[in-house]
Write a protein that binds this DNA or RNA. Structure first.
Lengths: 340, 340
DNA sequence: AACGATTGTGCATACGTATGCTCACCATTT
DNA sequence: AAATGGTGAGCATACGTATGCACAATCGTT
């Protein structure tokens, strides 16, 4: 177990100076082809790798991004929301594609996450992922922007918020899926999802839902709505709540797939058939949406694309290139649960 | 946007030397209480954070673990196996709990992953996660062990393999779930899962399945087995293959939940009822297993516990403490699909 | 033939921290 | 009063790389 070779070892064997080795391996044009090839050969032979800590320390950047995953506010914090997991996969791949490492961390929204990463020189920028009411942290975000921190959020895109946001078009998603149910002739469409401020994306979806109803000349009825956070259990509870009101309904727009799955369970328990009596739709298109019975019609967010945009935009921000927030399109995935 | 404060800045304001600041903040006993408190106060005031790169460079360790996630060999590489995602979540949490950062990377098993991480000084150790025939890489693993690399694998625990492995008791899982079906009176139990070497865990589960049948005095019948890699589609195909043989059966032991879900889809398409005509079981207990129709009886692997053991063991390995491979218990989660 | 332009390399140094060693100081002991 | 021991802090330095600057060598130009 010999110590790692350094650039000095390479230099010695190649008969050049250490800086020349550094330049050669980084592909600097000021090093001649012949020298570079010689150095590269020796480096390969010795299994040399650049010491990242030394390299980062000197160059003052890390080629690393930090992904801060904010815990669901829901009590069941033992599992991550499946959609965020899909995002995580996509972000990881895209970081690798761009030559960046990805540092992952779970956080509470209230904790002092800024200090831990970019400030500590562990990452060049941060991706903020998770439900959460960023508005409550406006002051902190403002300060971060002022300090020149590099970060980008996934969430509800609002022009007035500080910093950059990438998110899908939740309003349009809510609008189109509701339209879709209306086109099936559904008229008493419930909405399940938190209207709580902590879930700005759910609020947007709710806005789309309301707009669709209004455009169709229908009344937005409070009796057809119930709060649900993000879990399957929440969806189950919310659905039962509406049923227990004795409220008649023929459709359900759920703010997430998990909520929709819970709602279907509740309907099933009460002997209501899906989609014949009640059509149900979700949002996200998580894996499980394929396997429910009936399979769930839902608004798909393209996690692969979203991850690419997040990483790409953040890297451009780090490089000082012009960037802007970005609203991604959504797409309706039609399966059986909507009755179409 | 002023430059980050360094330990020299703190030292200046506190009227001490830089090394004293370093010692104070790291809690060295050679610094007096009074001095330490003073330094800590100033550090807080200036929003000081230790520069990780400098710190790591000097101390030659990073307080970072690398998670190498090997791609599924399955063609659909766009999504990560849900069980591994659950592991990822658990590993992340446990790293945080122990004060380590987690660096994530997708890899191909063939690529030169060792060089990229521990050697580059980016991580103190590596967690290897993914299906894969590590045996084919025995030589490389041997070399890594000889070089003193710190790594731990998730997978099939075999005493003869180099390095450390943590895995659940796949043989016992296969055994118990098959017993479970046998106890329901099932006698013609199929096995769906790759007997391919690339999936040692599936092989172990298959071993358990065979043992259970033999113990029950039943013959292990090739006609009741079909290869399936890890995806839902593979399970679907494999199930159809057996059905198309005209093979009679009353139970299915699938080597993963996704395979089981695909199998149930195939059975449903052919008008076979689950669990009345055919009982179906899975392995993993992914989220979706709750929501299938009927809900899937399966062998649960405790990802939360597994992640804790992996991280714990790796850290002890890094610290030079005695460690050993570890076999984790599995637990049968009974739902509707097994007919019990 | 002399001179500027170009090319390739070395020198010196900085990045910010952690730690072995030395040393001053004070309290206690003989 | 001298010797001893313990405590707290400073000095010097190392970790391995990247980069501004100087400079030597080569080339092309008039």
């Amino acid at each position: 177990m010999q110590p790692r070779p350094t650039s000095f070892d390479i230099a010695l064997r190649a008969g050049v100076s250490q800086p020349t080795v550094s330049r050669a391996l980084r592909g600097s044009p000021t090093v001649s082809e012949a020298t570079r090839l010689r150095i590269e050969a020796i480096a390969r032979e010795l299994n040399y790798t650049v010491d990242k800590n030394a390299s980062n320390l000197r160059s003052q950047h890390t080629k690393t991004l930090a992904l801060l995953l904010f815990e669901d506010p829901s009590p069941d914090s033992s599992s991550i929301n499946p959609f965020f997991l899909a995002m995580l996969g996509s972000i990881t791949r895209n970081c690798a594609r761009r030559g960046y490492d990805l540092l992952i961390s779970f956080q509470k929204l209230e904790s002092d996450w800024r200090l831990d990463y970019e400030d500590a020189g562990k990452a060049d920028g941060m991706i903020l992922l998770g439900y959460g009411d960023y508005e409550a942290y406006r002051a902190r975000l403002d300060r971060m922007v002022a300090n020149g921190a590099h970060f980008i959020r996934w969430g509800s895109v609002k022009p007035e918020e500080p910093g950059l946001t990438v998110g899908c078009d939740n309003v349009r998603g809510g609008l189109e899926i509701t339209h879709h149910l209306l086109r099936q002739g559904r008229r008493q469409i419930a909405f399940l999802g938190s209207a709580h401020k902590g879930f700005p994306e759910f609020l947007d979806r709710h806005t789309g839902y309301c707009t669709a109803l209004t455009e169709a000349g229908l009344r937005v009825d409070k009796a057809l709505q119930a709060d649900a956070l993000s879990s399957e259990e929440d969806g189950h509870t919310a659905m039962l709540e509406i049923l227990d009101r004795g409220q008649a309904l023929d459709g359900v727009v759920a703010a997430s797939d998990l909520i929709a799955i819970g709602a279907m369970r509740a309907l099933h328990e009460r002997g209501v058939t899906v989609p014949d009596q009640v059509a149900v739709t979700g949002f996200d298109d998580i894996l499980a949406a394929n396997f429910t019975s009936p399979p769930l019609t839902t608004v798909a967010q393209d996690a692969a694309h979203a991850g690419a945009v997040l990483v790409e935009t953040l890297i451009r921000l780090i490089h000082g290139e012009p960037v802007q927030s970005c609203l991604l399109p959504v797409r309706i995935v039609q399966r059986k649960s909507c009755g179409a």
